[in-house]
């Protein structure tokens, strides 16, 4: 059996983005991955781990995750208590929410995220310079747009449901209904299940073929 082994990784940087959201940069220690994959991460003194998409690119010599603390959760609050010099346990990267190599150069992509569901898209964008994408990011408030300056001008669009400070006021699904997507687009959807479910229906109704819709459900 190829067992899944957990290894200790030291936190080398922590970036606090909002009161509840932060990025942990950890030693890479040889973890192999493809952009879009996830790892299981947990505090080194506990027995619990959770899945986190990798935020950084395979080119980086560190590994990063973007975490939102779920207040009544178990692992995310524990991760939030950690700082530089502390350790976490991480196992091998897995997952199929990846882009087939032959498509990267020529295809047109629409990335649709809710909240921290932006993480694999950050990794895509960092990993594939020149990729033709548009990124729709559904958040409640404009301060949750995380590191939006990382994306080329005009490619990132924040849909804010609770304030009007974003690029579009409303949910990503409202935006999609009002701005139909061309059927030759490859759509990647990541984040909470309800958003993905509703967006999937809208996109299908707009003529996108199911085989061109890729999903990664967080919760």
């Amino acid at each position: 059996m190829q067992t899944r082994s957990f290894n200790l990784h030291t936190i080398i940087e922590k970036r606090v983005l909002t009161q509840a959201t932060f990025i942990l940069r950890m030693e890479r220690k040889g973890i192999e991955f493809v952009a879009g994959q996830h790892i299981q991460v947990g505090p080194s003194n506990g027995i619990h781990t959770r899945e986190y998409s990798i935020y950084s690119s395979p080119e980086d010599d560190y590994i990063e995750i973007l975490v939102r603390q779920v207040d009544d959760g178990l692992v995310s609050p524990a991760l939030n208590k950690l700082g530089v010099g502390d350790s976490v346990v991480i196992n091998d990267a897995v997952g199929y929410f990846t882009i087939a190599e032959e498509l990267i150069k020529d295809a047109k992509f629409l990335f649709i995220a809710s909240g921290t569901g932006i993480s694999p898209f950050h990794s895509f964008v960092k990993s594939y310079p020149g990729i033709d994408y548009k990124l729709l990011h559904g958040v409640r408030y404009a301060n949750e747009t995380y590191e939006r300056d990382e994306y080329e001008a005009g490619r990132y669009l924040a849909c804010t449901s609770q304030d009007k400070e974003g690029d579009f006021h409303g949910r990503v699904t409202d935006y999609l209904s009002k701005n139909p997507v061309s059927p030759d687009t490859l759509c990647y959807l990541c984040g909470n299940c309800d958003m993905i479910h509703d967006a999937f229906d809208i996109l299908e109704a707009q003529g996108l073929r199911p085989e061109n819709l890729f999903t990664e459900v967080y919760f």
Binding site: Q2, T3, D92
Partner: peptide, 21 residues
């Protein structure tokens, strides 16, 4: 083939059969 990396949310098999190979 052996193992599974799908991690369906209900399934324990990836934990007991290990990585897909």
């Amino acid at each position: 083939q052996d193992g599974c990396d799908n991690f369906c949310t209900f399934c324990i098999i990836p934990f007991v059969r290990g990585r897909a190979i």
